[in-house]
Amino acid sequence: MYSEKVMDHFMNPRNVGEIENADAIGEVGNAKCGDIMKIYLKIENDVIIDAKFKTFGCGAAVATSSMATELVVGKTIEEALKITNKAVAEALDGLPPVKMHCSNLAEEAIKAAIEDYLVKTGRLEKNCDGEVCGRRCDDIHHHMDIED
């Protein structure tokens, strides 16, 4: 089951909400897969100074979203890009094996937001449009063979 830290971040998630005029927004996952994370970043001189999120998903998805917003604040975009799903899970004192895929959601959301920022600041070409870019369940989740 979940660690105390996961339960704490689930029951009292940090940084829930939206940032008006955010410098970057990343949204990954889809409702079909059962989880969506949307992250908003405020960035000054390539340093993330604020982060907020909204998540549709299970306890682990909410907790990793909350932890991810805590981890990115104060980091440069380069440092933030290096945040791995493992790092997010470790910061939460681990996740149950079946829930490890939820931590991918947070890593992907950070990457998507920074991509959005780079596009907005003209440093990256937008290489896809909306739907086409939408990630499929399999991209985010890893297959498991656990039976109930």
Binding site: M11, C33, G34, C58, K99, H141, I146, E147, D148
Partner: peptide, 19 residues
């Protein structure tokens, strides 16, 4: 957390990817 035990058909509670 509020002391109520119930159940769901969500994928996340079944250990599979599908609801």
């Amino acid at each position: 957390m509020k002391g109520i035990a119930a159940s769901s058909g969500s994928a996340c509670t079944s250990g599979s990817l599908d609801p």
